[in-house]
Design a protein around this nucleic acid. Structure first.
Lengths: 168, 168
DNA sequence: ATTTGGTATGTTATAACATAACAATATGAA
DNA sequence: TTCATATTGTTATGTTATAACATACCAAAT
């Protein structure tokens, strides 16, 4: 069943930069989240579920206060910790990622257990695409004896849609 | 403050995790900075020079307000913009890097023109080692047509000194 | 049925990080 | 000198984040 009555104007990808069926990636994301939470024996509560929906609906990375503003409009919480805790939960459970360069959050493209990710962030339109971080740093780390616990790889630049329009 | 759990005893590396001649890396960093600024026809003013010294002297990444506090003690400026401008100048000219995960700054290990870098950040002692970001994301980006302008690669974990002491 | 323990949420207050906007001053070139 | 530009100083505010504590809820143990 699909409830497509939510056309949020420009279709900017979370997974990639191309167009995609947004309603589908939202429903898919939610059902994956249900499964992940059930498997991990953690609760996808109304607030957490709604925050994930908000991220899935958004066409770009959202700041904690952006999320909070949306929650507040729906009476789901109005104070920073509410948003930060829900976002923290989603990140901890591999359902969302924090983009350090933007102090913002996006729904994970491959929900499952917590994992590293690499992002390509378009400075022009704000689109964020998730990529697989391959080896790279891992080798360097092993060489020097550094034990990687988490890895942030963030590229900023222009997405395929924006390259042609680039002024600078 | 942030990293007060840091044992101030051992000299922790900026370039790597091993010991090193700290006085030397400081004087070397400063002379490289002179050359870089001369070549780029930009001014290494007293404030900027002192901020670079502060970073070179520090044994860990410093927040802008940490830097500011040191400047203030010396009468070189006491308001946030002073520190942020100097740090911005150093980053823009490849003399320092911003560590997104920490909202903090370190002197660059290979001063020269602006360049990407990868960091290994020890969550236990705050030591930060700079590594060379090799290929990796670049290929993924080319494949999808993303034009990388800047890249952040940040690993967090335990440095070689802290692995043995690891409790968790 | 009550207590207890765990998880989640609500709230206050504040810490920590960052920049816009404008004034004052210094520096260098015409 | 005079103008233009770069830098610094300052005020005010904006933005992001968390500590600390209170309350609500549910489920298992007594």
């Amino acid at each position: 069943m699909k409830n497509d009555a939510t056309p949020k104007t420009p279709p900017q990808a979370i997974v990639g930069f191309g167009k995609h069926d947004h309603a589908q990636c939202k429903t898919h994301g939610l059902s994956r989240a249900e499964a992940v939470c059930a498997a991990a024996k953690v609760q996808l509560t109304p607030v957490r579920r709604r925050v994930l929906e908000i991220l899935l609906e958004a066409h770009e990375a959202l700041g904690a206060y952006d999320v909070l503003a949306r929650l507040a409009k729906e009476g789901l919480g109005s104070k920073p910790p509410v948003a930060y805790r829900a976002l923290g939960f989603l990140v901890d459970n591999g359902l969302a990622h924090r983009i350090e360069k933007l102090n913002a959050y996006v729904a994970c493209a491959h929900p499952g257990e917590a994992h590293d990710a690499a992002f390509m962030i378009c400075r022009a339109c704000g689109a964020v695409a998730e990529a697989e971080p391959r080896g790279m740093m891992k080798r360097t780390a092993v060489e020097v004896g550094f034990q990687i616990e988490s890895l942030v790889i963030e590229a900023e630049g222009l997405c395929p849609d924006c390259v042609p329009k680039a002024s600078l």
